[in-house]
Design a protein around this nucleic acid. Structure first.
Lengths: 343, 343
DNA sequence: TTGTATGCGTTATCAT
DNA sequence: ATGATAACGCATACAA
């Protein structure tokens, strides 16, 4: 299995030509007589010669390598995003180097350093909570960085995001318009800025409608189905009335609906359910799950596209892109039954 | 943003020492006097010097890079496998280069070639249908290759797999033991060997029990929830009796149960449902979904471990590992009601 | 303890 | 049209 890789010098020797000629044949970089070309190509073929890209990259100071740092690869969103990134990069001749941080700042740092040492051409960075330190650090890097899923706010760093505050605001507004006055929220992990933004959107919508948000009715989850199930059961132990549950993703909505079914609440007659992030999982619901949907895959593609544009243009002004979303109230949301608020 | 990277020669000059000394300081490769070390470290720090790994790799002929080719990153299994791989590789100081084939042999080929040119130290390869050509090709490669999710059979190529035929055989046997005599199967895509193996396991179990498998009751799907839903509806249009549905994954089971609910069939009283691949998705089911579960994450870790062992030992005998699985009949499987077989 | 010089496998410049 | 040779940035054997 382990065979010595052949190099250009060896090919040159066997073909009876110089290294330069082999290089020219391989890269079509200059005219070579038909005769020698044939000769060289024959040797290349029979030796199964593959140029050592490292040497080439050493000269060109380009690796066609792009580093990606993500939290992890569990769940629906991130993998799809990676899928989109990978697709776009591949089409453009770039390779994707991937690393997971599991939320550790230290791991993030290590990955950045390794990537830079590996001389990646650019870095795509995703974290659950983008901080000032991140911003400061990134701006000192010698390669373009595009932040995914997190708004870089006033910092001059490109990013592509979902409009979390906006979409949750709109979704909540729609719920209130139907007459709901008290909603519960299954949020994300405490350290997730995305989750915080979505929560803020919900609160803002309530406030704008002169309704108050019950802090007890907002619980943190780890995004998983199981968590949605458990937290929903807990919700009813608090004896605070609510007529709708908003979840930050569809997994939580599924878990929640499982709990509701067990407790003999009907959806949407007794309780409305709305997910702020519908993926294909939503299809598992008996009813068409109401909620906001958007494409992680497209976000990944756009992120990759921005990074490539930074790589091509020398101007590279920072680009901030918000991906579109679609709100569909579908079948799990209805007007509340005001005469008997659910507990 | 774009700054010129500083190199070892420049650091040496600024520190007033030779390149060799800088190298020694950076790699702790030899003793350096405390004084010069301090001097050099100061310069390293203030210039933010990062060695160009490409040059080092060019010398050492090792990149600490491992290539991974997968079908895509959609669904539950593959991303978790990648997560496991990434985790193990990272701990061992390797980086993961990832590429998707989308089932195209041509893309697979391109990825292999790019990886080899990039001088990856090893390749992890996953495909939906491992062929003889794959085997022949892989054996001529100059780096170790470990195949994931597909058995390499008699070929001397390491692999780590789930025992698809075995687990589906056992699961089906359990079903038959309860009294089921006719089962429907929501299989995978036509080109998936994994799906074919699982189907064969089902058929074998039936045959061994002197029951025959109704070809009409086996349908191909694309693994998705929606597909499970649709195909289940179609199943009932065939007017062939069956009392249980086996699905090759839990997404299909969820889709199927959605259809059953719509048709007013009760699970498991009227129809039993059993999934041959329970992931976290199974939690979305109202009932605890019966089925086989195993860990893609662990499979990824084992695959990575095997590849690393090939990298370390020079012996590298081929290793074939079958991952364990767990069969749980849980709440969606029951004895059939023989008096009134479902259609 | 530190410095010098060579080589890793390419590409590119300059000859021929 | 082709060849010789100098980089690219680092590690290392050998000198000093």
């Amino acid at each position: 299995m382990k065979r010595e890789e052949i190099n250009i010098k060896e090919v040159a020797k066997r073909a009876g030509v110089s290294m330069a000629t082999v290089s020219r044949v391989f890269n079509n970089s200059s005219y070579v007589s038909e005769a020698t070309r044939k000769k060289v190509e024959a040797v290349i073929h029979e030796t199964n010669y593959r140029p050592n890209i490292l040497a080439r990259e050493l000269i060109h100071k380009k690796t066609a390598l792009i580093g990606l740092i993500v939290y992890d690869l569990v769940g629906e969103g991130i993998p799809r995003m990676v899928n989109g990134i990978s697709e776009t990069l591949e089409v453009n001749g770039y390779q994707l180097l991937i690393a997971t941080s599991k939320g550790s700042k230290e791991r993030e740092q290590n990955h950045f350093n390794t990537f830079l040492s590996k001389r990646v051409d650019a870095i795509l960075f995703s974290t659950r909570s983008f901080t000032n330190e991140h911003a400061a650090f990134i701006q000192r890097l010698p390669v373009p960085v595009v932040v995914l899923l997190q708004d870089t706010k006033s910092e001059p760093i490109s990013c592509v995001t979902f409009d979390n505050a906006g979409l949750s605001y709109q979704a909540t507004k729609a719920l209130l318009k139907l007459g709901h006055q008290s909603v519960a929220l299954l949020g994300g992990p405490a350290n997730s800025l995305t989750a915080a933004e979505r929560k803020n959107g919900v609160i803002q919508a309530l406030t704008d409608s002169n309704l108050s948000f019950q802090d007890d009715l907002a619980v943190a989850t780890n995004y998983h189905i199981e968590s949605g199930y458990r937290e929903t059961l807990d919700l009813f132990k608090k004896n605070k009335p609510f007529t709708a549950i908003i979840t930050v993703n569809d997994g939580l909505a599924l878990g929640s609906m499982k709990a509701l079914a067990e407790l003999n609440y009907r959806v949407p007659e007794d309780i409305s359910i709305l997910s702020l992030d519908n993926t294909v999982l939503a299809d598992a619901s008996r009813l068409r799950l109401a909620g906001v949907s958007f494409s992680y895959e497209d976000l990944g593609k756009e992120g990759a596209a921005i990074v490539l544009s930074h790589l091509k243009n020398e101007d590279n002004s920072t680009q901030k892109l918000k991906m579109p979303y679609l709100l569909d109230l579908a079948e799990t949301v209805a007007k509340p039954k005001h005469e008997k608020p659910a507990y």
